[in-house]
Simulated assay, not measured.
Amino acid sequence: MDVFDSLVSDVARLLDRPGRRLLGLCGPPAAGKSTLARACVDEINLRLGTDTAAYLPLDGFHLSEIQLERLGLTHRKGSPPSFDVHGYVALLNRLIGEPLPSHPVYLPDYDRMLHEPVAARHVVAPGVRLVVTEGNYLALDAPGWREAAALLDELWYVDAPDELRETRLRERHSGNGSSTERTRRRIEVNDRPNGELIKASRGRAGRIVVLVPPTG
């Protein structure tokens, strides 16, 4: 059994318990959280049936550019105060509240080309038993973030070497239309400090998952 198969088997064990379960993946920017979350959801649905699992990205709770400008946070987009963490907590509560919703619950996402959050890109169908949610700050010991973590059945920290992450960040920013200089500034002024803050929260996660692509 390879590493991914083992991870998915551990995710599937969450469903041994009744009710709807929440798995959170946290970690620094470009560690591979969203890739792992979507892959786990796809594999669980393949193994156990369509609409067994669903995906919820924290990035859908980015504040809009208008709100970032109002708050003076444009240069710190992606930092903890640039998210609507209380809205995120409210949605988590809605997803696991008793009784569970009998209708589809639509979930927001972030569009990297628009540079804005977008509504209703994802959905949790009534029969979904597992929601895999991912975001940088789910282990952060701060108001709002603590409340989010308390709702999760398990919280895993996804890690990758800093050099690999920053290579991915350069590719991400340049692919979204940023110039080389703007990309450099974004990493130095924003992504790198955010990453250090997130790394300090590593000990609050229940499991560490290190994602390094194979060589050769």
Rank of each mutant, 00 (worst) to 15 (best):
P193N: 10
R184L: 14
R202Q: 13
P214A: 15
N45C: 12
Y110S: 11
R146M: 12
S102G: 08
R207M: 13
E65D: 12
T167R: 12
P143I: 14
M113N: 10
D42R: 13
V105Y: 12
P57R: 01
R168L: 10
G203S: 13
D10A: 13
D159G: 03
E116T: 12
D59R: 08
R182D: 15
G19P: 05
G144Q: 05
G206M: 07
L36A: 03
V89S: 03
L114H: 07
E171V: 09
R13S: 04
L140W: 09
K77R: 15
S79L: 01
R186Q: 12
I96N: 00
L151W: 00
G135I: 04
S6M: 05
S64K: 09
W156R: 00
V8P: 06
G24K: 05
R202D: 04
K77W: 09
A139Q: 04
G195E: 10
L46R: 09
G195P: 11
H173N: 08
H122L: 06
L100A: 14
P29C: 14
L114Y: 04
S174I: 14
R94N: 09
R165C: 14
K33F: 07
A142G: 03
L95T: 04
T180G: 08
L114D: 11
D84Y: 07
M113V: 15
K199H: 15
R146V: 14
R76I: 08
Y88W: 10
E98A: 11
R70P: 00
G177M: 09
R38F: 00
R168V: 06
V123H: 10
S79E: 11
R76L: 14
N176V: 01
N45Q: 03
Q67R: 14
S102K: 06
R182V: 14
Y157L: 09
V85Y: 09
M113G: 02
E43V: 02
E188L: 15
L46H: 03
L15N: 01
R207W: 03
V3P: 00
V209P: 01
E181H: 13
K77F: 08
L7D: 02
